[in-house]
Amino acid sequence: MDSKTALLIYSRLLSIYPHTETHFLTFSNPYECLVMTILSAQTTDLTVNRVAPLLFERYPSPEALAGAEPEDVEELIRPTGFYHTKARHIIGSALVIVERFSGLVPNRMEELLSLPGVGRKTANIVLHHSFRVNAGVAVDTHVRRLSQRIGLSLSRDPNQIEQDLIRLYPQALWGEITYVLIRHGREVCDARRPACDICIIRDLCDYGTSEAREKKI
Rank of each mutant, 00 (worst) to 15 (best):
V126T: 07
T44A: 14
F82T: 02
L95C: 04
G151I: 06
E71I: 12
L55N: 11
A41M: 08
L95S: 15
P116H: 01
T122C: 12
A138Y: 04
H84G: 05
G119Q: 10
A64G: 06
I38C: 10
L115E: 07
V98C: 13
V133A: 10
V48R: 01
P106I: 10
V48C: 03
L146G: 02
N124S: 14
V73K: 01
R100H: 14
P30E: 11
L95P: 00
Y83G: 00
E32H: 05
V96A: 08
L46E: 15
L127G: 00
G81M: 11
V137G: 10
P79L: 11
V73C: 06
I150Q: 08
R108C: 05
L76H: 06
S147W: 05
F101I: 12
F131N: 11
K86W: 01
I125P: 03
H142M: 12
G117M: 12
I91W: 03
N29K: 09
R50Y: 04
V73R: 00
V137S: 03
T122M: 13
G92C: 00
I150E: 04
Q42R: 15
I38A: 09
L127W: 13
V143K: 01
I90A: 04
S40A: 15
A94R: 06
F82Q: 01
T80V: 15
G119T: 08
A135Y: 09
V118L: 12
F27V: 11
P62E: 03
C33W: 01
R149P: 01
V137H: 02
R100Q: 15
Y59R: 00
R100D: 14
Q148R: 15
F56D: 04
K121L: 01
F27Y: 12
A87H: 04
I38H: 07
S147G: 15
G136Y: 00
V126C: 02
R144H: 14
S28L: 07
N107L: 05
P62V: 10
I97L: 03
V105Y: 04
L127P: 06
A64I: 09
L154W: 09
I90F: 05
I150L: 13
V35P: 04
R50V: 03
F131Q: 10
D45P: 07
N124I: 05
E57Y: 10
R144V: 00
V51G: 00
V139I: 15
F56K: 05
T44V: 07
L46Q: 14
E63D: 11
V35T: 12
G92H: 04
L55C: 05
F131K: 06
G117K: 11
V96F: 09
E69S: 13
V35D: 04
S147M: 11
S130H: 10
T85M: 13
T122I: 14
A135I: 07
R120I: 08
V118T: 05
T141N: 07
D45M: 03
R78V: 03
L104Q: 14
T141A: 14
E75M: 11
L146K: 10
P116C: 08
P116V: 02
N124V: 07
D45I: 10
N49V: 04
L54I: 08
D140R: 09
G81C: 13
N134V: 06
A68T: 11
G119E: 06
E57G: 13
G151N: 10
T37H: 09
V133T: 14
L55G: 00
D157S: 14
K121Q: 08
S147H: 02
M109Y: 08
I125H: 03
